[in-house]
Design a protein around this nucleic acid. Structure first.
Length: 650
RNA sequence: GCCGGCGUAGCUCAAUUGGCAGAGCAUCCGCCUUGUAAGCGGGGGGUUGAGGGUUCGAGUCCCUCCGCCGGCACCA
């Protein structure tokens, strides 16, 4: 019989006289490829090397360098770990164990917890299985056969997974030696091909992610084709740890947390300086973009939250209190407050779009387990704004917002931004015609930005579609900060209206939008982005003037005064310590510029500048140095010569 | 909220099977007047997260609570 024609990535073809396996194809090309092959891509689908290819196909042999190799060997490692665990801890049930972004995990059902010492033992047992180089054998079985085999082992979770596999789908078991697992595959040729692996942590995880179901024990690990790649990844983890904003926040004396106020930051002078610099910058950008700024109450009566719908939808997240027979809530959001301002008088279409901004201080009942430094807090400040506009202004307002947001992110040093488009959810308010209009207006706007947009289906708010802006930091982590949400519901509920050109009353649309999201979180992200070494314009202390000897004290004072008059944030260090000690202290505190002054500088009226982390020094006369530093420390928007102050109040 | 781990001086960490709570750094005082990432000497500093229990005796063992860390769930 005739076999299939196999086409290779370079376009060459080869005919086979029988359905060849991936392994055979690799062997037909070269012995080296056969030895290095892990799996095979068949018409874009990853398959086992052992599976015969029955039809004409385009085929690529996957080797350890290919991007497909990583998830494959990690999945292999998950199986090896599961075997090791069941060997060491009989009675432990296996559940699921996939490859994930940076490694793999496997969830186990076992009454006793795994300890860190257990992880070491499991690693050793895994190493043995890897050394034994057992082939992964794929077996296609009937549902009944699979049921019988897992029932015999008492693997109730596997039986549940089996039941959830749709009728008609192939059921496969992967075996390594005498251990096997229900698995869709594919897998590498054998356990010996895993390369380098390491178990990282153990954690609880609900079965099927459902808090009402049993808590399983999840062991996380990672695997790479080579030891070097594993070491590089472990080094990266250490790097992330080094950048941790919680550690840097303490070391740089920016903020602290304490038990009595869990989830709320205490901002220290330096941290608050950073905060105010960011706030001032945002204020200028917003004013220049035609926003007005307001401040709305912290405590608002329950009745308003009932009308806005928050009482029904959001009550469990709100802090409430009683006072003089009134039920009050600390605001978790600013939108109802902004509508109150909109509603204070009859609005004309000529006022629209009306952009109302607030650095809104909000509180939410975040579960204790969710708290995480500045990234997840109970008290936070949003750079919030609500744009009241007509439906046909949505596109232009969205486009303008996207442009503003991108420019702001760039100023803070973030270049990589993705947009997720969250469209209509299954349960929603408003009829489909309204949703059609809102979604198409948003789509049109994001297309104009030219940015990458991915669909996040069904994840829109119940009142309208939304855009989520995800930025990527210096070490590749994603952070969702910005958002823009189209809202037809709140204006209705709180009865916002304006008089149109036709003289009739109309309902405005509200665009909820934020760029930084929460100031707290954004500062956390900034600290990690820069590993604490903030750009000069953001640094809480921009320059320290440090003396070599006390003889230079009066000149140092003069220098510090001059720099301060240039608007720089300066500190003076005339302590009796050695200059090398001072340099070390201020370097550890991440001060960007140290100006060293000794006798020579005082006599010549010069300044020697030392940049953070650099050994090189720059010698300048005093006035030149002051002017240069002041120039470098100018916030990016002002450096561009944009609006330097908000327009005069109306 | 759930699972697991952790909680000792401002920070980083010690303290034998339950047996006198310690070191370095920081702080304070003194000396040194210094040239680019730690000069020298001395002093002070603790209800070992909180509360309860076991014990002659608890940082150490047990219980409850709080907080932190890693995940899970949550993130309207």
């Amino acid at each position: 019989m005739r076999g299939p024609t196999i086409t290779f990535p370079d376009g060459t073809r080869r005919d086979f006289d029988h359905p060849p396996t991936g392994a055979e194809i690799a062997a037909a090309i070269s012995r080296e490829l056969a030895e290095r092959a892990l799996a095979v891509m068949v018409d874009g689908e990853l398959r086992d090397l052992s599976e015969p290819i029955t039809t004409d196909a385009t085929v690529r042999i996957v080797t350890p360098e290919d991007p497909e190799a990583l998830p494959l060997i990690r999945h292999d490692a998950a199986h090896v770990m599961a075997e090791a665990v069941q060997k060491l801890y009989p009675g432990t049930q296996v559940t699921i164990g996939p490859a994930i972004e940076n490694g793999f995990y496997y969830d186990f059902a076992r009454d006793e917890p795994f300890t860190p010492e257990d992880l070491a033992k499991i690693e050793q047992a895994m190493a043995e299985i890897v050394r034994a180089d057992k082939p992964f054998v794929r077996e296609e079985v009937s549902r009944e056969e699979a049921r019988r085999r897992f029932a015999a082992l008492g693997e109730t979770y596997k039986l549940e997974i089996l039941d959830s596999i749709p009728e008609g789908e192939r059921i496969t078991i992967y075996r390594q030696g005498d251990w096997f697992d229900l698995c869709r595959g594919p897998h590498g040729p054998s356990t010996g091909r895993i390369g380098a692996f390491k178990l990282l942590k153990v954690a609880g995880a609900y079965w099927r992610g459902d808090p009402k179901r049993p808590m399983l024990q999840r062991i996380y690990g990672t695997a790479f084709p080579t030891k070097e790649e594993l070491d590089r990844y472990l080094h990266q983890l250490a790097e992330a740890e080094r950048r941790d904003h919680r550690r840097l926040g303490r070391e740089m004396d920016l903020f602290h947390f304490q038990e009595e106020a869990a989830g709320s930051a205490f901002w220290h002078p330096r941290g608050w300086t950073l905060w105010r610099e960011i706030e001032s910058y945002m204020r200028r950008r917003l004013a220049a973009a035609g926003y007005v700024e307001v401040k709305t109450p912290q405590l608002i009566d329950r009745s308003l939250w009932e009308r806005s719908g928050h009482w029904e939808k959001f009550r469990e997240h709100m802090f409430t209190l009683e006072f003089e027979d009134r039920a009050l809530a600390i605001k978790p959001m600013n939108c109802p407050g902004h509508v109150q301002i909109f509603n204070t008088r009859l609005r004309s279409y000529r006022e629209l779009p009306l952009r109302i901004a607030e650095f809104g201080s909000c509180h939410r009942k975040e579960p204790s387990g969710a708290l995480h430094g500045l990234m997840r807090v109970r008290a936070f400040t949003q750079d919030d704004a609500h744009i009241f506009c007509t439906p046909d202004q949505i596109t232009a307002e969205t486009a303008a917002f996207c442009a503003l947001l991108m420019s702001v992110y760039r100023d803070f040093g973030f270049e990589q931004v993705r947009i997720r488009f969250a469209d209509r959810p299954a349960v929603r308010a408003g009829d489909d015609a309204v949703w059609d209009q809102a979604e198409s207006a948003l789509w049109q706007a994001v297309r104009e930005t030219g940015l990458e947009v991915t669909l996040n289906p069904g994840e829109g708010a119940f009142y309208g579609p939304k855009l989520e802006f995800v930025l990527q930091d210096a070490i590749g982590r994603d952070w969702q900060c910005g958002t823009l949400q189209v809202d037809f519901v709140l204006p209705e509920r709180l009865d916002a209206s304006y008089i149109g050109a036709d003289g009739g009353k109309h309902r405005p649309v509200m665009l909820h939008r934020a760029i930084l999201g929460s100031l707290e979180r954004f500062i956390g992200i900034l600290i990690e982005q820069y590993a604490g070494r903030l750009p000069l314009w953001l640094a809480p202390v921009q320059v320290v003037v440090a003396t070599v000897t006390n003889d230079a004290d009066s000149y140092a004072r003069e220098v510090a005064d001059l720099l301060a008059r240039q608007g720089l944030r300066v500190e003076l260090d005339i302590s009796a310590d050695k200059i090398s000690y001072k340099v070390r202290q201020h370097s550890l505190a991440k001060v960007p510029v140290i100006a060293v002054v000794g006798r020579r500088e005082a006599e010549e009226r010069r300044l020697v500048l030392r940049r953070l982390g650099e050994q090189a020094q720059e010698q300048l006369d005093l006035e030149t140095a002051a002017a240069r530093l002041a120039g470098e420390a100018t916030p990016p928007d002002l450096a561009r010569g944009g609006a330097t102050r908000p327009p005069a109040a109306q």
